[in-house]
């Protein structure tokens, strides 16, 4: 089976600073890849390069475009990339402010992607928005409220609904539970795990939190100083870390 995404020798430098270096991997449909490492290890730069938002200095990112097969995403035109980002892909950011329109109602936030690809029936758009709000366990009474009045956990659930409404095959998440209370985190993780399985979503999740990685990811990539130091199945990497840095990471957090 051909992979959904294939990355070959990807590197990115900011001036003299090499943020990520020589990274290669494949991701298959429905697979969840966790990218772990401390802040400054190059995780977010990698995620931006993978999600067509930052042109890498070197290397190739290929994605299995519907009807076109594996295609180097940086050979696509800007409008094609922007279209990909709001249809077959989703991006969930750590700060909901970056991923939501804070002044637009929850329903409008979810409906935007549908309208962007041509939906013109208010009732149907609203129905779809309601479906997705229930899937992310939001109170439907809040559908006409703007997210600026929502709690952090609700904003994050709304961001997820907004991304999933076009039924993407791949979702990029940057610290999706960062900045939330532990109990809120747990609920959100449960929800995410359920959705990923139910929708057979592939996902690349960047996190510094190994508990998040263990709950969501099938496979892990451990990054340090811009390089991948260890990869493998999640349980394998966390229960039997080989690289000294991974060992340090695992031992420095409470076991889950």
């Amino acid at each position: 089976m051909s992979p959904l995404m294939r990355v070959h020798s990807l590197s990115h430098a900011f001036g003299n600073l090499l943020a990520c270096s020589d990274i290669s991997f494949e991701l298959h449909g429905g697979e969840v890849l966790g990218v772990v490492g401390e802040s400054g290890s190059g995780k977010t730069t990698l995620l931006n390069c993978l999600s067509a938002r930052l042109t890498p200095t070197n290397g190739i990112v290929e994605y299995d475009l519907r009807g076109r097969g594996l295609t180097d995403i940086y050979t696509l035109s800007e409008p094609e990339r922007r279209l990909l980002l709001r249809t077959d892909w989703g991006v969930v950011t750590q700060n909901p402010r970056d991923g939501l329109r804070m002044g637009v109602s929850a329903g409008g936030n979810v409906g935007e992607r549908l309208m962007a690809v041509g939906a013109r029936h208010y009732g149907e758009i609203r129905q779809e928005a309601e479906d997705w709000l229930s899937k992310v366990e939001m109170d439907l009474g809040r559908i006409d409220d703007a997210p600026k009045h929502f709690s952090g956990g609700m904003q994050q659930r709304l961001q997820i609904a907004r991304n999933l409404v076009t039924k993407p095959r791949l979702v990029f998440m940057d610290e999706p539970t960062g900045g939330l209370d532990v109990s809120v985190q747990a609920r959100l993780l449960d929800l995410l795990r359920g959705l990923v399985r139910e929708l057979n979503l592939a996902a690349i999740i960047v996190t510094h939190d190994l508990a998040v990685a263990r709950l969501l990811a099938d496979r892990l990539m451990v990054m340090k100083d811009g390089k991948v130091v260890e990869t493998g199945l999640t349980d394998q990497v966390l229960d039997d870390p080989h690289h000294p840095y991974t060992q340090l990471l695992v031992s420095s957090v409470l076991q889950v």
Partner: peptide, 22 residues
Amino acid sequence: RKMHAYKEYGLMQVSLYEDIAR
């Protein structure tokens, strides 16, 4: 200008959606 060039007019439709919702 990018939105015009790429015919990305979803946001305009969102503003109409918001009107009806409100």
